[in-house]
């Protein structure tokens, strides 16, 4: 497991049904591209990135992103969503090494 990985999500506490709101996400991750060489040994440093990010709301997919090695460190995604009822948003990041990081945010309708 890569070190120092910490998911962060910012959603509004309350959303209006049928109106778009903005979600910001960031996961701290070094995103090792697999293209760099170790300066001392000359060996390639193995790729270690977050390769997929998803967001689900009450079981429905909101966004599903595949991430490639060119994405820089600490990948940040911002997107808009529309919900019709209150519920839980589940954010999931998939690491090359098999680790899965997730975090959940409740969205209320107000």
């Amino acid at each position: 497991m890569a070190s120092g990985v910490k998911p962060r999500v910012k959603t509004p506490k309350k959303a209006t049904a049928g109106e778009a709101f903005t979600i910001k996400t960031l996961i701290s991750h070094k995103m090792e591209s697999g293209q760099r060489k170790d300066k001392k040994t000359g060996e390639l440093i193995p790729r270690s990135i977050i390769n997929r990010f998803t967001c689900e709301f009450n079981g429905t997919s909101v966004i599903d992103i595949s991430i490639e090695p060119a994405v820089s460190t600490n990948p940040y995604f911002q997107f808009d969503a529309v919900v019709q009822e209150a519920g839980d948003m589940v954010f999931t990041w998939y690491d090359d090494d098999g680790s899965v990081y997730d975090t959940t945010k409740s969205v209320a309708i107000g």
């Binding site: 120092g4 910490k6 962060r8 701290s28 940040y76």
Partner: peptide
């Protein structure tokens, strides 16, 4: 502060 990448380091 969410957009500010410094806060990754503040968390560290």
């Amino acid at each position: 502060d969410f957009d500010n990448p410094s806060f990754v380091f503040v968390d560290i």
